[in-house]
Design a binder for these strands. Structure first.
Lengths: 208, 208, 208, 208
DNA sequence: TATGAATGAGTATTCATTCAT
DNA sequence: AATGAATGAATACTCATTCAT
């Protein structure tokens, strides 16, 4: 009578999904605030309003939780990249505008960016984590690289570097700026990426 | 009897300075390897070959040691920046080459760069540390900003952005790339900075 | 409708009996491998292929399960002892051979023996358990004591000790040897018991 | 001035030795009472009147403490065995009496015996521990084996079994009886060992 | 100045057990 | 009857820090 679509009672699955989601969310906040190493499972559970045991009913370990966040990260970014790529026949100006708003969106929630830094730092320390991380990272880099390559093709100029390397540089710029910015002013990485890209195009040799 | 200027026996002061130096050095390595939070005072003391007590004879706390490293950081960078600035009458090409080698030097010891990231992360967490850190950071940013401004002046172009902001962007790029690179290939931040700068110059309006 | 005597579907009772049997069996293995204290209910349930809840549907607690194993133990041993006792008119040689094969059987499944040790250890710690354990133990000791007494009567010699004490000593020997033997060579307790018994007989005074 | 032989102040070494000794002693009691697995480091430290950290200043882990107890065990037993062996020209009766008092002494402190069982159980579970344990065990077995061999030589009889195997059987008997006896009556293992030995001698063939 | 034993709060993780489904 | 998410206390062990030597 009272379960299924009711708002009061959640089915067991939904209830666990909720617990898991709340723990994930809280963990993400805390990783950004205090770093991965500086965040204890007790902190996460307490702040999310659960027992420590509840954490272990949902995640096998702290690292597994980080991996789970990484996967969420990956999915969100894949969505954004595909919207940068899939529609045809845009002008270079349109592509640049979209790139700028891509960076802005990514970082409007500055937390995403700091989390990304925590992920990178942890990948540098845990080989297990590094393996999964690398895959996500490479995919992302390749996706953004294709956008950059497409931009140069549209303006009929030769990219002065492997577009993937340029993409990696833009990601690095974004992360480095997030590190500087924490809690301070607004994010300028979108604007700077566009500025740099315009410069590269201006200095690039025409195709052929 | 046997101390003072002898080479065998160090004066008490020198001996303490040596202890302090060895602890600092070891701490820096460990912060880079394992992060600030991931490094214990016991680790530092043990790896440096001292007791934990020796650590507390030289530093009031772990954070005080980090501040001490920050000051060393600052001095080293001030030296490098001043050598970028002080000689007159260079061609734009020379300035770019020097900028490239500046980035290369800074990161040839990639450790410096990762330590810088640890410093930034910790500044985001400890207000006490943040204050001291900000001063150092601002000075550095201003110094590098002047170099960038000088470059645009030399080529008689209008910088497309406050030179200090560009300087911050290059530092961000350098840090972001260091994060990506750990343990992997060689550093490419110098090359990329020069590439971006050439682009900006190519796209910049002439002065007046 | 479709259960009762069918072979495909077990009646609800049979199905629960099966669950209980599988949990018991698995628990016994694990107690032997890791000790009573070293075995968690989760381990038992998981290895048996059930949930933790299923455990609590069948046993009130871990100790209750141990008691259940103890009762199984008791029944099995009672069967073996009665087969040592019930047939009349055997020669001493036959009795000794049977004793040897009793020990061998008991320990061929060395697990029985290690479980017995775990039971004893736990009885030393839990008064509740000790009470039930004592009853089983005493019955077993009396039964084996009668076998020993019968042997001395058959050879018309005076036992040099209360036959029950001798029986307890043989059980102790068996357990002590099991403890030494774990995972190693074959069990020699049967042979040693016979060796010692022959000695006692050789040294014993004739009756009257 | 005031340290060294003073009773009030212990030197740092002595003070640590005392801490270590108290922790060892307490641990031994608790291992006997609750088993190795059933004893927590918190229990040990609390009962001994120290912090948990003090435990880790003295022992690297719980297992290392067990190894330390094992070594103490070994030394104590070596002393007892050598006193069984070294004086010449004893009658068989004297040797038997000494064997009886050996068993009695060993177990007068019944704790030793239960500890020995805990050691054996743990050796069956931890390969690291097993290695060290085996060495001690083998030495002990060989020592007691020599005593048994000497006894048969003295009475000019052929031992019906490798004396070392007989020795192992007596140790097993002692341990098995300790398991039965906990908290109950007095130890009878010395008496039983002598009884069995007399029997073996009575049944043994004369030397050549 | 340097030592390192000791502290007490903290770490990640596992436990037996409960209870809504 | 069986499930498994959740609990809260316990586990072994590490931490930064103190202080008598």
């Amino acid at each position: 009578m009272s379960q299924s679509t009711s708002k009061k009672r959640l089915s067991r699955e939904d209830s666990q999904a909720q617990t898991r989601a709340r723990l994930s969310e809280t963990a993400q906040q805390l990783f950004v605030e205090n770093g991965y190493g500086g965040t204890s499972i007790r902190d996460i559970a307490e702040r999310a309003g659960y027992s420590q045991g509840a954490f272990y009913s949902n995640f096998a370990s702290k690292e597994e939780l980080l991996l789970s966040l990484l996967r969420g990260h990956m999915e969100a970014e894949a969505v954004q990249l595909s919207s940068l790529m899939d529609s045809e026949g845009r002008t270079p100006e349109q592509i640049l505008t979209e790139l700028e708003s891509w960076a802005a969106t990514l970082n409007h929630d500055a937390d995403w960016c700091m989390l990304s830094i925590e992920l990178q730092l942890h990948a540098n320390r845990s080989p297990v984590f590094a393996t999964e991380f690398q895959a996500v990272w490479d995919a992302h880099r390749a996706g953004l690289g294709r956008v950059v390559g497409k931009l140069f093709a549209t303006v009929k100029r030769q990219p002065p570097e492997d577009p993937e390397e340029l993409a990696a540089a833009f990601m690095a710029l974004t992360h480095g700026l997030a590190l500087q910015r924490v809690g301070k002013g607004p994010d300028s990485s979108g604007r700077l990426i566009v500025l740099f890209l315009r410069g590269l195009i201006a200095a690039a040799a025409p195709l052929e």
